[in-house]
Amino acid sequence: MDNSVSPQSSLVSVKNLSFSRGNKKIFDDISLEFERGKITAIMGPSGTGKTTLLKLIGGQLFPEKGIINVDGNNVHRLRRSELYNLRKRMGMLFQSGALLTDMNVFDNVAFPLREHTHLPESMIRTLVLMKLQAVGLRGARKLMPNELSGGMARRIALARAIALDPMMIMYDEPFTGQDPISKGALVHLIKSLNTILGLTSIVVSHDVHETAAIADYIYVISEGKIVGQGSPKEIQQSKSDWVQQFMTGAADGPAHFHYPAKDYIDDLLSTGKRY
């Protein structure tokens, strides 16, 4: 498979990664490169382990095999304090936002600053307001997380993720469950933050149009393997059945509509069983 991204220019590189959950193989010897300053998307059907990949990169899970390097550090060889230092430079946007529910919006964004810096409150205030302004929610600083819509919660979480000015941000399904306006706002934010702050972004998503609109490079993963990779244009023109099924949203194809089961007729005729 042609790997057009050179490893030297990549901030994150995943080499020969294998990972299983129980008997299910989530990743089977895959390699990916995430270039500095670019938006790289990982796409694929639900349940292909896209979130797991982000947790592996963040050092929250351990691979069975393979190496993950972030900015020259082998994530799984680092000592705990070194890993925590690296994580200060990695932002992550969780699907749910993962805001702390006992704090208001302002305190949520201020949380990493208060935990990791000794800045005076006046400076923290300025920084928090700047981050909130960047996501357009400076006016919502006094609201509690339960008073926010899903889209707002994600934008607040994004403000929190950039609070410490990280070198990269990992987005876990940023568009899922969002209305078109929120989706548009998030697409715009991811793109503009990446450019303005000079970030490296990894976007995990199954929203084809939104992701293709902003990504510089796309990997399509299915059943533990990379089934396609390239620029959005190359992906759209791909001849791979897997990629075509995913991009066009066909119900059946290489990824079957039916979950594996025994023969339908046999199943209906086997009486006396509860399930």
Partner: peptide
């Protein structure tokens, strides 16, 4: 519930040890 809503995981990714905090 903090675990279910990924708040603990989120804290870990912000380099804050949820056990200590």
């Amino acid at each position: 519930l903090m675990k279910a809503t990924e708040q603990l995981s989120g804290m870990e990714m912000m380099a804050v040890d949820p056990i200590k905090r």
